[in-house]
Amino acid sequence: MNGVIDLQLWQMAAAYLFIVILLFIVRARGISREREILVSTIRMTIQLILTGYILVFLFENINPLYTISVIAIMEAFAIYNIFTRTKVKLSRPLKNIIAFSMLFGTLSSLMFFLLVVINISPWYDPRYYIPIAGMLIGNSMTGISLGVNRLVDGMISQRHLVESALMLGATPKMAAKDYVNNAFDAAILPTVNSMVGMGIVFLPGMMTGQILSGISPITAIEYQIAIMLGIVGSVALTVILFVQLGYKTFFNEHSQLIISD
């Protein structure tokens, strides 16, 4: 197998030609997105360069404290991102449940994946820990964001049906069942759908990266299958925890709906 082609500075610069072409197109068509495209490109470049240096440092100075700190920052950023990306106003108890579900769902999936499926040693090896945590946390973040929006939207827009169910003697769990199921479905569907096109419509990023870095496609595929199953597990665990606990925040201890008009 050939070695990896090391990109020269001029080759990197050439890749930015795509952005120049994009800027040219949006300007020619009078679409006012030049600023966003430029800012996003610059942000992406700086963020990735910094990440590269940080990863080099972490890989050369293997320390459990560093690994745990990185995971903590990832989790904090993901949870904050869910709060800000949600279109609806979130109550304090619901925010607590989002944070708990993310932490418990992703960390337990991550530990199982690394310690049982991959069986890494030492347990805090950042070369495995950080990229895999990134994939599990990132996908769970997207899933739970979709679930939060669907659950809150369903409970608020259909509150008259929820209240009618309570009047007919339903428990809060029965009254919220449809909206809980819809939220779980909305959250898990993109991950399930992405498995369908994988390998045919697109080659996943991790696998592409491994193949480009010279690893056998078979090994890359083994890892990709494992990580995809890990992602599905993490998203499902995170979202099921969230919906099963989250709907309860819409009711008080007297099984009364506490959504105001």
Binding site: H160, L161, S164, M167, L168, G169, A170
Partner: peptide, 27 residues
């Protein structure tokens, strides 16, 4: 003690579904 509001909600489905849903909710 069952309450029927002034504008009662109708659930999606048939008349039969709507009649039975109260029995399902109250087990």
């Amino acid at each position: 003690v069952v309450l029927l509001p002034q504008s009662p909600s109708i659930f999606s489905g048939s008349i039969k579904d709507n009649l039975l849903i109260g029995l399902k909710f109250s087990e």
